[in-house]
Computed example of a mutant assay.
Amino acid sequence: MIVIMRPEATEADIAAVCQRANEMGLAGHPCYGVQQATISIIGFDESFSPGDFSSLGGVDRVVRVSTPHKLASRQSGLPATAIKIAPGITVGSGLTFVAGPCSVESREHIVHTARLVKAGGASMLRAGAFKPRTSPYQFRGLGEAGLDYLAEAGAAAGLPVVTEVMTPAMVEKVAARADVLQIGTRNMQNYDLLLAVGRTDKPVLLKRGMSATLTEFLLAAEYILSAGNPNVILCERGIRTFETHTRNTLDLSAVPALKTLTHLPVVVDPSHGTGRRELVLPMARAAVACGADGLLVEVHPDPDRSISDAQQAISPEMFAQLVRDCQAIFGALHPENARTTV
C-alpha cells in the first residue's frame, strides 16, 4: 500500500504512519516529494485495509498497489512527475534536449562543445568523466579532472550538467559537480549504487539495462525512490537483441508502455540506441512522436574524431536540425504545451 500524505503533514504525522506499519509487522518507507510525502508500506499487507491508516493525522488517502514497483507505479495515485533541474528547466513538462560528447576529452574541447550545443537548442550538457567500457584498453575517461572540466563548461555555457557515477564511493564527489546523476546501463542493477544516489537530493537519470525487462527497469527505479529520492528520470537507450546492424535495438514501444505503468518522466537516447549517426535523427523524431519527454543525444564538434563512440556522434549542425524537427513534432502533438524545456 501507498499512504499519500497531505502537503501540510508533519514529521510527527509521517512517524505515526511508520509506527502503525511496524505494529502490524510491516515496514514504512517515507519518500519526500516536492509537494507532499508518500509512505510505501512494505510487507505482506493483504490482510490489512486502507482504513488502518486513513484515519491517522496528515493522511490524504491510501492506495493499495498490486505491482511490485509500488512508488514508481501509476497505481500510487501520484500525478505525472515533473522534475525541476534549474529555473526554467523541468523534465516532464515540455520537451527536453540533453546534448554533448560521449566523453570529456579536454578542458578546451568540452567548453567549446557546451557552447555549440547551447546554441543548437540544448538546455543540459551531458558528457562522461568516468567511462565504463567493454574493453579495459579503451579510453575510460579523465576521471575527477574531467568532472572539473565538465562543471566549468556547464557554467560557461549556462547549462546544467548530467554525468555518470559508477560507484557508491564516488556519489558525493560527482554530486558536488553535477546537476543530474546518471546511472548507466551496466549499473542499472547495481543496488548499492542505486541506494546511494537515492540518498542524495540530486535528480537521477536511470538508463535501462541492455537486457532488462520493463519490470526490472522499474524495480531499479524503485530502489532509488525507496531510499528517499523522488526525482528519477527513466531513459530508454536500446536493448540487446539478435540484430547486429545497429548497436542496440531501440525499443520505442517502451515509451508508451512506461507511460501507462509509471508516473516518472521518460527520455530516449537514440545515439546509444542505434549506434549509427544516420539513424539518430529519424529515431529521435520517432521517440518524440510516441511520447518521450526528451532526448539524450551525443554531439561532437568533429564527430569522426571523437575519442569514443565516433560512429554515433552527430555534428552541431545535425543536432540543431534534430531540435527543430522534434520541436515541430512535439508542437503538433501538444499545441497547448509546445515550449521546449529540459
Rank of each mutant, 00 (worst) to 15 (best):
I4V: 15
R6M: 14
E8W: 10
E8Y: 09
V17I: 05
E23G: 12
E23Y: 01
A27Y: 00
H29I: 10
I41S: 06
G43F: 10
E46A: 12
F48Q: 06
G51I: 07
F53Y: 03
S54E: 14
S54Y: 01
S55P: 00
V62Y: 02
T67M: 07
L71Q: 14
R74S: 10
P79I: 10
A82P: 04
I83G: 04
I85R: 01
P87Y: 12
T96A: 13
A99E: 08
P101G: 05
V104H: 02
S106H: 04
E108G: 00
H112Q: 15
V117N: 03
K118D: 02
G120R: 01
G120I: 08
S123Q: 14
S123G: 15
L125Q: 07
L125G: 06
A127S: 14
R133T: 12
R133L: 12
T134Y: 08
Y137R: 07
Q138D: 15
G141H: 01
L142C: 04
E144A: 13
A151E: 15
E152A: 13
A156S: 13
A157V: 06
L159C: 08
L159R: 05
V165H: 03
V171C: 08
E172R: 13
E172T: 14
E172N: 11
D179T: 04
L181I: 11
Q182A: 11
Q182R: 00
T185M: 11
M188N: 04
L194A: 08
A196I: 12
V197F: 02
T200P: 06
T200A: 05
V204E: 11
G209C: 08
A212R: 00
A212V: 05
A212F: 00
T215F: 02
A220G: 14
I224Y: 04
I224V: 15
A227W: 00
I233M: 04
I233P: 02
L234S: 08
E236V: 09
R237E: 12
R237L: 10
G238E: 12
I239E: 08
T244V: 13
T249I: 09
T249Y: 03
L250M: 11
D251V: 03
D251H: 02
L252N: 07
A257G: 08
T262Y: 05
P265V: 05
S271M: 03
T274Y: 09
E278F: 06
V280Y: 03
P282S: 09
A284P: 07
R285K: 01
C290Q: 02
L296I: 12
L296A: 02
P301R: 09
R305S: 12
R305D: 07
D309P: 01
A310H: 09
I314S: 04
P316N: 09
E317P: 00
E317L: 10
L322A: 05
V323G: 05
Q327P: 00
I329S: 05
I329A: 08
N337H: 10
A338V: 07
